[in-house]
Design a protein around this nucleic acid. Sequence first.
DNA 1: GCAATCGCTGGGCACTTTGCTCAGTGACGA
DNA 2: TCGTCACTGAGCAAAGTGCCCAGCGATTGC
Lengths: 157, 157
Amino acid sequence: MGIDELDGRLLELLAAEPRIGVLEASRRLGVARGTVQARLDRLQGKGVIRGFGPDVDPAAIGYPVTAFATLEISQGQGNDVRAHLASVPEVLELHTITGRGDMLCRLVARSNADLQRVIDKVVGFEGIVRASTAIVMENPVPLRIIPLVRQAARDAD
Amino acid sequence: MGIDELDGRLLELLAAEPRIGVLEASRRLGVARGTVQARLDRLQGKGVIRGFGPDVDPAAIGYPVTAFATLEISQGQGNDVRAHLASVPEVLELHTITGRGDMLCRLVARSNADLQRVIDKVVGFEGIVRASTAIVMENPVPLRIIPLVRQAARDAD
DNA sequence: GCAATCGCTGGGCACTTTGCTCAGTGACGA
DNA sequence: TCGTCACTGAGCAAAGTGCCCAGCGATTGC
């Protein structure tokens, strides 16, 4: 478990220039091509790298509004609610959490008005007792992982 | 703005097999290679595809605990707080939101005990009045975009 | 009605990269 | 001291890339 300094540099490099090839990466990192290939295989095998999915901006495909909804679920309905939420395309992410609410989900919508439609779709389901929604205004720190990778690589030294 | 059906299929294909090449993608989609190349360029140019960054699992690099913290910020301190949070590697994401709290951030930690350290680091800063944290237990719907892409592609038909 | 533009096709070309293999080397632990 | 392991550096055939071109049908503007 954990990654070393070379893994860290490789991940940083991949994050900075995702379409880079193995050969070019080996040149940048100053190691042999086989090494990069082996590291990549290992990182994927260990699950450190889940994939290289295209990072799609919801705003660019017509969904500029993001919101987080906290849902309170009635006892025993958890599985049904999960299946329901998973079937809604505007639900980008769903977590079960500790605390007052039972679930937290990330929503997107075409507009603030459209958000109402999405919320109605989300909460219009047996088992959801209450929902409280917070609309995202700014996103000062977009989802990132590199600073953490750097720290993990440093710690493992 | 928006994407058509071919864009949608291309994005789905890239999500399913990220390391696929342009040539192979053109074969799967049944279109000419130049078309795929042009579509890709256009999608990246329009910002639909932000990148192809490696999707790193925080759990696999030693941070298996995820939490969401709602922060209440005192007036006028917003920028300082943002800069502070951006400097904390364990803060993976930060949003400013409507509603009671002022900011919502996603945190990771090495353990539940370690989460205390992270929270102390996050809130130990002038301008943060209060913080309320919810620990993630399960993640029934991991961050996804394909269902939305499919819907956007269908709507644009 | 006609010309220009645009997106897609299908082909070709030089060049690079990949996937794979192999032998050699230094570090490490049994 | 002997394996084991990770890394190096090299070679090879196969495949993919970047780039070019001519043709073609649909849409747009004159």
